[in-house]
């Protein structure tokens, strides 16, 4: 493997301190990027919720007393709202994850498909959150 050699002229161009103009009011994260960062954020949310979810599983199974206790605690609207947030995190992570698997298998081939599938992920995960939320509330 030959090392890349630069001429003195190229080096001076590369080392030049260039002004950087970032038009921050024009730069926006595109929808696939939003889906991607939300995939991370929702994954992190679910990770932090793990001990709580395991505790809920334990209470739901251990005995009829702990089960009743859990149901009484979960009747609290604030907790229900928190669980709804977690439900969205799960559904978004699930849908966005399926999209990433589809991308890995080359089902998403161009920019239009990337944008459309991102839209589908956002809409489907939000709609499922509302639907399941209504059913559980």
């Amino acid at each position: 493997m030959a090392a890349i050699r630069f001429t003195a002229c190229q080096k001076s161009v590369m080392n030049k301190q260039r002004p950087i103009h970032l038009a921050l009011h024009l730069i926006k994260l595109p929808l696939p990027g939003i889906v991607s960062i939300l995939h991370r954020i929702s994954g992190l949310m679910l990770f932090f919720a793990l001990p709580l979810l395991l505790l809920m599983l334990q209470y739901s199974l251990a005995s009829i007393e702990t089960y009743t206790q859990l149901m009484a605690v979960l009747a609290n609207p604030l907790l229900k709202l928190m669980l709804l947030g977690l439900l969205w995190a799960f559904l978004h992570h699930f849908c966005a994850g399926l999209r990433f698997l589809a991308i890995d298998m080359h089902y998403v081939r161009n920019l239009a498909q990337a944008r459309n599938s991102s839209k589908v992920v956002m809409v489907v995960s939000l709609m499922l959150t509302v639907l399941i939320g209504i059913k559980l509330w």
């Binding site: 991370r40 994954g43 992190l44 679910l46 990770f47 793990l50």
Partner: peptide
């Protein structure tokens, strides 16, 4: 979760 958290 381990792989995801490690990546983050």
């Amino acid at each position: 979760a381990w792989v995801g958290i490690r990546d983050i």
